[in-house]
Design a protein around this nucleic acid. Structure first.
Lengths: 341, 341
DNA sequence: CGTTTTTGTGCAATCGATTGTACAAGATTT
DNA sequence: AAATCTTGTACAATCGATTGCACAAAAACG
């Protein structure tokens, strides 16, 4: 249990020079003589000197840390985004502090305060379901805190963002169902105040209109996107006329609920009923029949938003043109929607 | 874009007192008069003063941060553990810095160095697959760094840990298969140098022996625990005599591979073949038939290891009796192993 | 009333790294 | 040889919070 860490002062003392010289030598300052520089660097190596991040952060006012806020860490999508960010940020010398909101706006505010306290160099977040008002976000941006959004972005705030083109993903899904010959397509939708669910609804409507199929409000069923929500939507759908022959769900878990409900009713998928989900959750590959869905390219999204941040700090000439990237989603066609064999 | 943060000096100036008095007032130091204390606290509230964590960390030598190292953030199990830790640590005022090793030992060493640099108050980790040697861990523990393991623990290091009783989980699974009437049970095993896979094998052997069934080495097939590994194991199993009637897999993805391979061969699960997995991955609920597996109580594990850390820092009287907790796993019986209906 | 104790506050050092400025010695220019 | 420039290093302040020590004023005591 020796002294825990070597400091520049330890090195300075041993070489009979000042700490400032050591610091400069370690940073290859041009004014430091070659002899001194090499002596310092050798000794640093010998003692395995590691700069105290807190001290240098305090002095420089930058913490080399990025705060990440997600609704839930253990949701497949978010875990993948975080995985992507981690790879980029770590290799650029940044840490990540991670907070989850559990979809609660007060958790979100708490997390924001925590991260601002920790003096993170940026906050990268996906807003919670409950977040309808964005005043707490605006305050931070106005204060000059670097902020980036991914997936669930807040359009009203001027901030960089990466998201997938949900509208396009939905459009492609519905278009695919139409191509397969399905005609009476119900949309199981998510909460309307979240941009991604609004966009998915738009894509659904667009595909129908393009095909000349009238859209009706009663065919858009807003439900919680969990298996139970899917089952509820299925029951509602059973009462519609004409009888729906396909369900486009804004989430995979809801699609799974539809699948289970259909099975219970003796309906065959995909013959009697086509089903598509959204998110490419791992289980969709393994359901019977396997589920058609839309991949959100989570890992890439994490990489891109992290890169966006790095680019921004690098230039940091103040004039940051806010970039909003939209990734193209990938329609993954599986058996739950393959009418033609 | 005003001045970003209020400091104790700002408050001190406004009240014509010294910064040290402000600091003491904010910490309810008994020597500070009531009047001063209240004035300070009011002003702090008014300006929404938030202490600079880096400054206080630097001074106090504690960062209020915990480093977490996992093989992959986006693996369901680890994401759930992290989720559990997050809830506990955040409400105790700690941050988490998260690193992933991607199962590489050099990534692991890099992560350790990074976290030590960041002066984390503890490191909570699950070792990578590649980690066979533990010298790099011992060095840190000897240096006095607080270390805790979960799931994949390193027994040779004296450190607190939380894991599930893998041996028991395996024993229960195999016992269940035997109770169902299966007799010729293959074990698809994981890498033998990882404690959890060794323990699962032990449980398998124990259940067989207890039932008076001879165990043979050729019935233990060590494979990568992915669907392809399962398929490979299935092919090997097809050549055994007598023909296996059940597979106990050390991982769910391998079990899935067996399920798919069996289906391709026209074998009916569970009638012709019983299958059980390990980990309770979300998809196991949704396969056809649904998969029997063992739940590892990931969230609880995260909560417990975080609590263990908090208890340790709180007392910190040096005399820390190393605690090694073993959680009881939960056998989740589903259709892939239900011979009796 | 003089002495001791308690109370309330400020000073200054500290944590470790960084950086503007000063300054001496050596090199170059005129 | 004097003037100027370059090179190499040290000093001291700084980032913001914390804390041991000092000390004055007030209170308690004999």
């Amino acid at each position: 249990m020796k002294k825990q860490h070597v400091t520049i002062h330890d090195i300075a003392r041993e070489l009979n020079i000042s700490a400032s010289t050591v610091s400069r030598a370690l940073h290859n300052h041009p004014r430091i003589s070659r002899a001194t520089r090499e002596a310092v660097q050798q000794l640093a190596l010998k003692y395995n000197y590691q700069p105290n991040v807190m001290a240098s952060s305090l002095r420089k006012g930058r913490s080399k840390t990025v705060g990440v806020i997600v609704p839930r860490i253990n949701r497949n999508f978010f875990a993948n985004v975080i995985g992507g960010m981690e790879e980029v940020l770590t290799s650029a010398g940044y840490h990540m502090i991670i907070c989850q909101t559990l979809e609660k706006v007060n958790h979100e505010m708490f997390a924001l305060r925590t991260l601002v306290n920790a003096r993170v160099d940026a906050i990268i977040m996906s807003i919670s379901m409950e977040t309808k008002d964005h005043e707490h976000l605006r305050i931070l941006v106005d204060k000059g805190i670097r902020m980036f959004f991914f997936d669930r972005i807040c359009e009203e705030i001027r901030a960089g963002s990466v998201a997938i083109d949900d509208r396009l993903g939905a459009y492609q899904s519905v278009r695919h169902l139409l191509d397969q010959g399905y005609r009476n397509i119900v949309h199981v939708a998510g909460a309307g105040h979240i941009n991604i669910y609004r966009a998915r609804k738009q894509g659904y409507l667009e595909a129908l209109r393009e095909a000349g199929i009238p859209d009706r409000d009663s065919w858009i069923i807003e439900e919680s996107l969990i298996p139970e929500g899917g089952k509820a939507a299925f029951e509602i759908g059973m009462k519609l006329a004409p009888r729906p022959d396909a369900y486009f769900c804004a989430g995979d878990y809801a699609a799974l609920g539809i699948l289970q409900a259909a099975r219970n009713r003796g309906l065959k998928v995909p013959d009697d009923l086509g089903i598509t989900g959204f998110a490419n959750e791992p289980f969709t590959e393994f359901t019977e029949p396997s589920m058609t869905t839309v991949d959100q390219r989570a890992g890439e999204m994490g990489v891109m938003v992290a890169d966006m941040f790095l680019k921004d700090v690098d230039q940091s000439d103040g004039a940051n043109p806010v970039e909003r990237i939209m990734l193209k989603p990938e329609l993954i066609i599986r058996n739950s929607s393959m009418l033609n064999k």
